[in-house]
């Protein structure tokens, strides 16, 4: 019974962390990705190089940086956020945002110039053009969201460093699997893994339903 309660609690923390970090990363990364994919501007090359480098950032390094920032003597230590879900979201965002920028850029660069040119010719406002770019690339952006979510829910290195894998507080599916494996509880670890896979499957099915509805609209 207690095990079931703990499992649901871990599941809740995992979903909360993954959804928040996916939302924040997409809100920051998608506009930047569309912007870099859309046109030529000063600093575009630098953004692309930086994004490419950060896409390969090892999770433990991201975790270490966030840990140092939020530790007692760090510049953000006064916030007292270390070993909380909030700081796990911060670490996740550092890892996922470059991925979101990179994939959005490569996906939207295919049609962003033509859409912008069409919109410019029709005297659309900047806001209307931005909304058009997003709606025309809805399906591509949906796969970006799925990738971000997938990366977030599967991440273990950074979240265990900054979250501390604290029972009833910051333990998530991946860190729980690691702990149970270390303890030798392979069957429970495997069960947790299956639950994690099921979540991914549900999210993907929901996304494909959304895409189908959009195609039929």
């Amino acid at each position: 019974m207690n095990m079931d309660r703990e499992l649901f609690q871990i599941l809740g923390v995992t979903l909360r962390m993954s959804l928040f970090s996916t939302c924040i990363s997409c809100l920051i990364g998608m506009p930047l990705g569309v912007l870099t994919g859309k046109g030529d501007f000063k600093g575009k090359g630098t953004i692309k190089k930086l994004t490419g480098t950060l896409m390969g950032l090892p999770p433990v390094v991201a975790g270490l940086i966030v840990y140092m920032l939020f530790s007692k003597n760090g510049p953000l230590g006064a916030l007292g956020l270390l070993f909380t879900v909030e700081v796990m979201v911060v670490a996740q965002c550092i890892l996922i945002t470059p991925v979101v920028i990179g994939i959005t850029e490569s996906m939207t660069s295919i049609n962003a110039k033509s859409i912008s040119e069409t919109a410019k010719g029709l005297n659309f406002s900047k806001r209307k053009t931005a909304l058009l770019l997003l709606s025309e690339n809805k399906q591509a952006l949906l796969s970006v969201v799925l990738t971000a979510f997938g990366r977030s829910i599967a991440e273990v290195g950074a979240v265990s460093l900054v979250g501390g894998n604290i029972q009833w507080k910051t333990r998530v599916m991946t860190t729980a699997i690691m702990l149970e494996t270390n303890k030798g509880n392979f069957s429970f670890a495997l069960a947790l893994g299956i639950v994690l896979l099921l979540i991914s499957l549900i999210v993907n099915v929901l996304a494909s339903v959304l895409v189908k509805e959009d195609k039929n609209a």
Binding site: N111, S114, I115, S116, E117, T118, K120, G121, L122, N123, L132, S135, E136, K138, D214
Partner: peptide, 29 residues
Amino acid sequence: LSGVIAKSEGSFGFDGELYYLPQQSIPFR
């Protein structure tokens, strides 16, 4: 003239409102 790309030199001006139909005008979804 439509402002899609910038000129390198010189000047141009027109009165009123301008609309531009590019060669590859994308149909919206």
